[in-house]
Computed example of a mutant assay.
Amino acid sequence: MTQNENLVALSEAGVSVWLDDLSRERIKSGNLKQLIDTKSVVGVTTNPSIFQAALSKGDAYDEQVNKLAGEGADVDTTIRTVTTDDVRDACDIFLPQYEASAGVDGRVSIEVDPRVAHDADVTYSQAVELWKIVDRPNLLIKIPATEEGIPAIAKVIGEGISVNVTLIFSVERYELVMNAYLEGLEKARAAGHDVSNIHSVASFFVSRVDTEIDKRLDAIGTPEAVELKGKAALANARLAYVAYQQVFEVGPRFHELAGSGARPQRPLWASTGVKDPNLPDTLYVTELVSPNTVNTMPEKTMDAVADHGEITGDTVSGKGPESQEIFDKIAALGIDLTDVFLVLENEGVEKFEGAWTELLEATDQQLKASSKG
């Protein structure tokens, strides 16, 4: 099969192409393997909303859920079994990409229960449990970057477990995430783990930043405010990349760990589907091209990039000053950026909690129906 030239160009520019979706149908039909062969896909991310959507469509899971019902499994056990089975199968599909990239890519993510996003101890225990259940070296455990999640991230990495830190919105929180990663690596090394086997990505959410800030710019309504619409998300991500460079390219703390084989925690651009129809549908891909990054895309965005995305090389490096200027202008208009990021984090956790609750309820109904049948 022939790879799409636009996505090849993106990969050659240093961006790993990951799919932001997973379902049993994708796995069993061969669709996931086809995306690897034709769209340069080298990883997959999942979240509670993705699993909720997958399990609510079609009948791909009916046989397994009915079997579990017959065994007397409860709702939590059923969902854990179904989702970890999918992730394990996806890990096996991506094993060649994992081996070819020395563990950098070929990664599949699974998230801890979003209901424990504000409980560090339970987050830690769930992360360890999921790591053992899936039992694949190319797994990433997703942990939300809430205040309570930060210490859990360090503790999980300290156990030698690879982590995808999710729901990052601000550079300030991202700096705490990078610190937690380094702390975790130091703990892991002290405990005798081979730190070269520990990998991590930091999922920086993109489009939602524009959605929230543009709403506030519209409310202000001045020409200066309107001029800034559609610019905050890219500026935020580019400032995050500056922070990444400071820690992992020139920082002495990571340099010392790198001597033991430690890998940098790559920035991952998440939420890259464009929500504003007035913006180009490839904006959060073509304008976030830089080395050592990941872009996890919904299939619709991936198709748009494959069809008409123009990859022109690095569109991030060196743009820190102009990105900071955009944020200075936004703040000067009276927009409370601290509040923006707090709202986005809370909404993100609530959205995943809501999807998980829907999944629990639907699965509970199916288990009860199977038991009666």
Rank of each mutant, 00 (worst) to 15 (best):
A53E: 15
R263M: 14
A331W: 00
L333G: 11
A127T: 09
G251I: 11
A180D: 02
T272E: 01
T146Y: 02
G354V: 08
T81V: 07
A60F: 04
K57V: 09
H193P: 10
F205Y: 10
R253F: 00
V122S: 08
T357E: 15
S23D: 08
G318T: 14
L228H: 10
F248V: 15
S11W: 10
I93C: 02
R26F: 07
I220Y: 09
S196V: 00
L239M: 15
T2M: 13
N179V: 02
Q366S: 11
I110C: 04
S49I: 08
L139C: 02
A73D: 08
V17L: 12
T81S: 12
A102Q: 12
A100H: 11
D37N: 13
E310H: 15
N6L: 04
V177N: 08
L234P: 04
V349F: 08
V247A: 14
E99H: 06
I27E: 06
V112A: 01
E353K: 13
I330M: 09
V343S: 12
G348Q: 00
E111F: 10
G149T: 13
Q3K: 06
T312N: 13
E25W: 00
D86P: 06
L95P: 01
E5L: 12
Q324S: 14
K132T: 11
A127E: 05
D135H: 13
D194S: 13
A73T: 01
G309Q: 05
N31P: 00
I220A: 11
G192H: 14
L185Q: 10
D76Y: 15
P321V: 12
L279M: 09
E129H: 02
V104H: 14
L239Y: 09
I168F: 01
E12V: 07
V128K: 14
F204H: 03
T123P: 05
S170T: 03
K28H: 06
L283M: 15
L268M: 09
K372V: 00
L55W: 00
S290R: 14
L167A: 04
R189H: 14
A233T: 11
P151S: 11
